[in-house]
Amino acid sequence: MIEKLKAVSPWRRFTAQPGNVGAALRKNSQFLITLAVIALAATFMLSQGSGFAVRVIQLSAIFAILAVSLNLVIGYTGLLSLAHVGFFGIGAYSVAVLTTHPAYEQVPGHIRYFDWPFFAALPVGMLVAGVVALFVGGVLSRFRDDIFVLVTFGLAVIAHRVFLFWLPVTRGAFGIHAIEKPSIFGFVFDGKTEFMLLTLGFLALVVFVSWLVVSSSFGRVLMAIREDEGAIEVFGYKARNYKLTIWVISAMMAAVAGGLSASEQTYIDPQSFVLLESIFLVCIVILGGLASLVGSLLGALVFVLLMEGMRFIDFIPDALVGQGRLAILGILIVLLMVFRPQGLVGRYKL
């Protein structure tokens, strides 16, 4: 009896018939979800004032760069990586170390100064991340599924320890202070709005490049690797090369986010690059939708609003806000896995 009721629930019956409102809703659910999320976000941000909006957009743009780049690996290639925070950190530390100015230095005599401009340091950061990714990817290419996840867990922990203990370069737990804002042709991106625009510009670039990648034949091969690596190899594709390539591309994009984040905060320390950040990123990607670039943008926006929005809920003490967000995020992930494994707007199910 119960089985029967389940099979033909009113909602099912309503939506199954073509041509009615329900069917239209189902068909366009992705578009509608996108609209709803953006509308909600915009209303909330505007109600809190423009300063808040700028902050949220700025933060979500950085998270969006990370999420889009991670989605290339998780959603399109099927490699659930938790090591992304490492590349994020490499980008951040590269920019921080290379741009440090002696005048701002707080512990003199401990580190070499480079005093490079931001726009010269960022490509170097990307290059470093890319080279590291190439080596790490070589090791990773022999693991699959859950063992792959375990090894990337390990890589994230190792990366954090390197940031923490490679004192001559990273200055350990003390961190690097007074990181310069980017400037080009005498124009300095020092205002909040200017920096937001810069970040959005980079986001647009990253999304464009990602779109180029996933809409090429290369992107389709990646999805085939995700579906059945053994089968696609029989058709003449060397899956290892494809996986390494996307891994390196993704790492370089994460390094861009790292550089921007370091410059935006003007201060970094290893605590920003712990395993938890990687877990957040995976949550964003899954929340938004696997193998969907729009999904990653939405996921980042929802995530940042969730994080920032909880500050405005009165009855939660400030000290618990961080933990409260974590709890909500965890519950959200469980619910997603149970009810909507394809995320908000994705089509691919894990």
Binding site: L80, D145, D146, I279, V282, L326, A327, G330, I333, V334
Partner: peptide
């Protein structure tokens, strides 16, 4: 369909309980 769904689901549980 894949062990990863269980992995991510249990990751959510871990986050929630720890928090």
């Amino acid at each position: 369909s894949s062990p990863l769904i269980m992995l991510v689901g249990s990751l959510g549980v871990l986050l929630t309980l720890t928090a």
